[in-house]
Each structure stands twice: as C-alpha cells, then as structure tokens.
C-alpha cells in the first residue's frame, strides 16, 4: 500500500492554473472519486502522481518519494486518451507492457482477457472504442499495483463496456493493498464505487469527504451534491 500526498501543489499551462495550491492526502486502501467538470484539474492531478507532469510549485509524493522510475513501478496509470501502440496486437501489447512490471499477474490478465471478450490477435488500431477501453482497464487491473490511477475510464463508451469496466474495477480492487483514484465527470454510474470523493473546482478542493457520510449527513446522492457544487 502507498500513501499519495499533495503538498501545496500548483501547475499552470500558460495562463491557466490547472491545479492551484492543492493539498490533499489520499487514504490508503480506498477508492477515491475525483469529480469535477472538464478542465477542473482532475486529469492534471493524476498526471502529477504518474510523473507525466512536474509541479511548478509544491510536492507530490508517493510513500514519501517524488515521482521517479521507482514510484512508477508502484503506479498503474490509465490515461483518458489512446496511449497504446496501434500496430501491436492485444497479445503483443500485454507482452510488451508486462515486461516492465514485477507485479504483473498473468493469471489475472488471462481471466480479464476472457471476461472482456477481447480477441488476443486483434490489432489495437482496429479495436472499437469500447474494446480499447476494456484493454486499458485490463492493463491497469492485471497488476497488484499499490496505486491505480484511472482517468475517465468510462468516458465515451457503450453501456456494455461501461458495465464490464466497472465490474473489473470492483472485482480486482484489493482493499488491503491498493489505493484507486478514479476521475470522472459522470457521477451517476460510478458513485457506488467510491469510498471517498474529492470535488475539484478550478484546481482547488471544493468539497471532500467519505461518500457514505456525505449521503448520511446531507441526505443526498453524490450526483446531487455534484450538481449543487458545480450547477
């Protein structure tokens, strides 16, 4: 397990402050829902943890260490865009990616391959959008990575694929050894997944807390709270 900490982190792109003096500690062994409209800084937060962006100010640490090849070995990162090599087949992609990770679980990968209905011989560039999303979640969940970062894993895909992706997250999540951070702007479908939620607005924390406690205290679903904060 690993603790991810943001200490007064800022990151700008030109004049836009994507993340603005953000401080936050992600609790171990939980699924955190990173919620907010487009451009609220969700994706930037995940890239900062994955080491694909470097903070302008402040510090992001994973178990006390700033992103490096060592922390990258602890992180499974699923970006929103298509980041796989189109010319590879599904099987080749698995072979290539798994070569880099000591925590790759071959059995789990084979199980997920079947569950997702992915053809191992299909070329990645020929896969439908839903199938590509399934392959991405397979790659993220076939490892026993202490930190799993899922950037909009459900966006723009068909209902069957969405349901498969959600199911894969729930069934492969190991609460005793993993921390999952999942960003989404579509709360309805995924809110039952979250232990905690973090509402981001203009790169700052607008609201955060345990999902169940928020429901109990406010008598509202996370979706309704979302509309309240961003509506």
């Amino acid at each position: 397990m690993a603790t991810v900490v943001f200490e007064r982190v800022s990151k700008s792109f030109g004049r836009v402050r994507a993340v603005d003096e953000l401080s936050f500690t992600i609790r171990e062994g939980t699924i955190l829902g990173l919620l907010g409209p487009n451009g609220s800084g969700k994706s930037t937060m995940l890239k900062l943890i994955a080491g694909l962006y470097r903070p302008d100010a402040g510090r992001v640490t994973i178990d006390g260490q700033e992103p490096s090849p060592k922390t990258k070995a602890m992180v499974a990162y699923l970006p929103e865009i298509d980041y796989l090599y189109g010319w590879m087949t599904v099987r080749q992609t698995l072979e290539y990616v798994s070569a880099f990770y000591a925590d790759w679980d071959r059995e789990r990968a084979e199980g997920l391959l079947k569950f997702m209905g992915l053809d191992p011989e299909a070329r990645v560039s020929r896969l439908s959008k839903g199938m590509r999303a399934r392959l991405k979640i397979l790659l993220a969940m076939s490892r026993s990575a202490p930190v799993v970062l899922l950037d909009e894993p459900l966006s723009g895909i068909d209902p069957t694929s969405r349901s498969r992706v959600l199911r894969a997250i729930v069934s492969e999540f190991r609460a005793d050894s993993q921390t999952v951070v999942m960003s989404t702007h579509d709360v309805v479908e995924s809110e039952a997944l979250f232990d905690e939620v973090l509402f981001l607005k203009d790169g700052r924390v607008a609201l955060t807390g345990e999902a169940e406690r928020l429901r109990e205290e406010r008598g509202k679903s996370i979706q309704e709270l979302f509309e309240e904060v961003f509506g």
């Binding site: 062994g29 939980t30 699924i31 349901s163 959600l166 199911r167 729930v170 069934s171 999540f173 609460a175 039952a192 997944l193 979250f194 232990d195 999902a211 169940e212």
Partner: peptide, 17 residues
Amino acid sequence: QRELASMVQVNPNTVQR
C-alpha cells in the same frame, strides 16, 4: 463480500461494512 460487490458494482469496503 467480493461476489456481492462485483454483482451490484459497489465498493468492496462498503460491502464489508
């Protein structure tokens, strides 16, 4: 717990509770 969490697509920690 795992079966139920997967069936109803709810956080395993919630089911555990």
